[in-house]
Amino acid sequence: MYELTICHLYPDLLNLYGDRGNIIALTKRCEWRGIRVRKRPVSLNDTLDTEDFDILFIGGGQDYEQSIIQDDLLKGKREAIREAVEAGRVILAVCGGLQLLGRYYRTREGKDIECIGAVDLWTHGGQERLIGNLVFECEFLKSDCFDGLVTGFENHSGKTWLGPGVKPLGRVLKGFGLNGEDGYEGAVYRNTYCTYTHGSLLPKNPALADHLIALALKNKYADFESLEPLDDSIEQAARDTIIKRLTGTRF
């Protein structure tokens, strides 16, 4: 029997906008296939070891909460996270999590806040919040029977740019994405996936959830080939409804 350990970093602090929906989706989609899931919350003063998890989830927090974790993250957990990224562990970082994995966050006042520096990306605080539903297209999810479209909701004022070694997660069809300027959303570096799409990202985009689960199983089990398909008609309906509303596309 396969088993995966999902680590939720600072679940009591970085849990904005229904972030835990992503953990719920990963867990359920494993369990429905008979894959055992162990959940491991890691918060302030807890040690984080690269060996401790197969999937790491980092959500977003409000400024207040992000200021609380700043020290603990940089002093206690930075090395483990950098190692994990380089080792190709599966990581999903959402919104504030995306920003924290980058090199720095420059506030509107021009002050640079040091971040983990595990992924070559950086963020500048913007004047207005980029808020709304978004749809983007992920090349790596496209197949004969799937259009590669991912949908969700973004709410951020930071504008993020990617360094040369980092690929965007997708191309924005509707919404703002990374910075509202270059037409891209999210970042992929090795097996680290970053996005501004929060909350119900994975529940509503089961193809992406399964992609991450499959990567984690591939990392861990040499005999793993592929995931058995599930009945995702409810998830597809939720995804299709909002994509149709945003893009006018018929399904």
């Binding site: 906008y17 229904g18 835990r20 719920i24 808020i131 709304g132 909701f153 709410n155 909350g199």
Partner: peptide
């Protein structure tokens, strides 16, 4: 509220 992610909380 235009964001319904809160349903996951």
């Amino acid at each position: 509220g235009t964001d319904i992610s809160w349903l996951w909380d």
